[in-house]
Design a protein around this nucleic acid. Structure first.
Lengths: 202, 202
DNA sequence: AAGGAAGCGGACCACTGGTCCGCATCGTAC
DNA sequence: GTACGATGCGGACCAGTGGTCCGCTTCCTT
């Protein structure tokens, strides 16, 4: 329990590094062209400081990602409907997926950088496990013969960073259309799709 | 038009490189520990030969992958049902996805190596475009309000190499169970699942 | 047989993530 | 305020990667 508080220069440097990295990832097209040395320079610190504070490149990216994701997580875990825990599963599942999709759209560069850290599978990260567990539990409360765990994986795969990047960034699919497509697909999986209707195909 | 045939030593070397790379990828757990120099040494050629024949690392992996995939492609394009073109969409879609899943299970290392080539998105490859176009066209012939293109992307995302690796390799999901889960999910998406309640046109 | 084209190979290069340790900075005890 | 040990800093340094280059070898053609 002798958790000594970090020194104030350490705190300042950590913040500077995170800010610099965030800016660099936002500015650059391909995440791999953001190097550790570049981040260090941009933050005005030495490389050693980066590795001391975050362990390695993956650790830095993960820290950045988690920081950005934190508001979403809070809203999901203790916010009001339709994202919060009080929402019935049939509405919460699509709301959750939409929130994740929007997050990835708003943080494409970061999400891409994180998933592209080839070293370890993107499935063994804490935040993936969390989303998956939540989604799986929600799906379990919705009648349907398909395996909830697998369905949760596939629904999450529909929001993978590189797919989102491909559709939104390269194919220029507009944000709202992408959201609608995901919602439609989700509705189909959940069986909540409105029956024969005027589906205005755009 | 003046396509000169390659010299015979070039042909021999190319084959040797492909064989050596295949063996190395099969032997190693993580694809990134297979280096170009290692492949060259194992094949008994110089590094220059690798790059001359395949352009870069991605080119080599892609060539290997396409070579392995070729039988599947042939079966799909001109084979008998349920994979061949004579099959009605409602049966061909699940058959196609099952074939892709099995292929990835049988070639996990290669598929992983290919998808992990972070440089370019896995969505802009020739074979992905081919699978996607085929799947999308099949889906178009099945009534359903969801966007066929997007649905095709998500169904293909369900067979992504790292997800398959995670489920089969790390979580030890048995092959047959994985196939069943994918089939179940697909059936749900297609609406071909025997449903107790409201059946749409099907 | 001879000449030129195609291909070879491995030293070489640029650059990366990551380490290391002498030195500056900080928090604390007096 | 000052002295002092602990904490953190920084950038030279390292190992190892993908990729290039060019003198030399092998092959094909005539």
């Amino acid at each position: 329990m002798t958790e000594r508080r970090p020194r104030k220069d350490a705190i300042r440097n950590r913040a500077a590094v995170l800010a610099a990295a965030d800016a660099l990832f936002a500015r650059c097209e391909h995440p791999e062209e953001v190097t550790m040395a570049g981040i260090a320079t941009a933050a005005g610190v030495g490389k050693g400081t980066l590795f001391r504070a975050f362990g390695d490149r993956t650790g830095l990216i993960r820290a950045l990602y988690e920081a950005r994701l934190e508001p979403v997580r809070t809203t999901v875990e203790e916010g009001p409907p339709p994202l919060g825990p009080a929402t019935p599963p049939l509405q919460r599942v699509p709301a959750l997926l939409d929130a994740i999709l929007c997050f990835k759209l708003d943080n494409r560069h970061l999400a891409l950088a994180l998933e592209q850290t080839g070293a370890d599978s993107p499935y063994r990260t804490e935040h993936y496990e969390r989303w998956h567990a939540l989604l799986r539990d929600l799906l379990r409360r919705i009648p349907g013969p398909a395996d909830s765990g697998f369905t949760a994986h596939v629904l999450l795969a529909a929001t993978r960073a590189d797919l989102v990047e491909y559709l939104a960034g390269e194919q220029r699919t507009p944000r709202e259309e992408l959201r609608r497509q995901l919602a439609d697909f989700t509705a189909g999986v959940l069986g909540t799709r409105e029956r024969p209707g005027p589906d205005a195909e755009g």
